[in-house]
């Protein structure tokens, strides 16, 4: 519980700060903080393998890619997030309403027994690389191979997009 409250608050605070951060580099660093806090939450839920891959894939690779592009483009200048124009005010009202709708849509489920029951005891191998590997290479073998294909297509697509076009 302590772990959940502390790192949940950290994740939520970092997310809110990220949304209202003017500077794109600071926003990326707050995203790292949020992702690391979520990684600890994964650990508290018994997902050791996902804890490691969250740090490596998200906090490592993806955010480094973000920072690299921010600095490549030179858009690390501050921007004005909240201008007090009618359009922006309408946008914020719309954003708040849709956030509330998202929460309200899930509210009926929250009272169900699965959600309020005590967490069951789990076997020691729960969430280890071995158990996930078993699931991945037996039940989900075809989707796993397809993600490999997806990554290949993405790599080729990036090379095509990033290539300088001959004039």
């Amino acid at each position: 519980m302590t772990l959940f409250i502390v790192f949940g608050a950290l994740a939520l605070g970092a997310a809110v700060a990220m949304v209202f951060q003017r500077n794109a580099v600071h926003a990326a660093l707050l995203l790292v903080l949020n992702l690391l806090a979520v990684a600890v939450l994964f650990l508290s839920l018994g997902a050791e393998f996902l804890f490691a891959s969250q740090i490596i894939v998200y906090a490592g690779a993806i955010v480094v890619l973000f920072l690299f592009v921010i600095m490549l483009l030179g858009v690390d200048r501050s921007e004005v997030v909240l201008e007090h124009t009618p359009f922006q005010r309408r946008q914020i009202a719309l954003g708040a309403v849709s956030a509330l709708v998202l929460i309200g849509a899930a509210a009926p489920v929250l009272g169900s027994k699965t959600l309020t029951a005590k967490l069951p005891a789990i076997p020691k191998t729960f969430g280890s690389a071995q158990s996930i590997g078993t699931v991945l290479f037996q039940t989900y073998l075809l989707p796993f191979e397809l993600t490999g294909l997806l990554l290949l297509v993405a790599t080729i697509g990036i090379l095509m997009l990033a290539k300088k076009k001959p004039r």
């Binding site: 939520l12 997310a15 809110v16 949020n34 939450l41 954003g95 929460i103 899930a106 699965t114 967490l119």
Partner: peptide, 18 residues
């Protein structure tokens, strides 16, 4: 901690992202 608390947190983070 129950599953419901984590689902609450997940919903709040999703709403902040949206």
């Amino acid at each position: 901690a129950t599953v419901g608390m984590y689902v609450w947190l997940s919903m709040l983070l999703f709403a902040v992202g949206a």
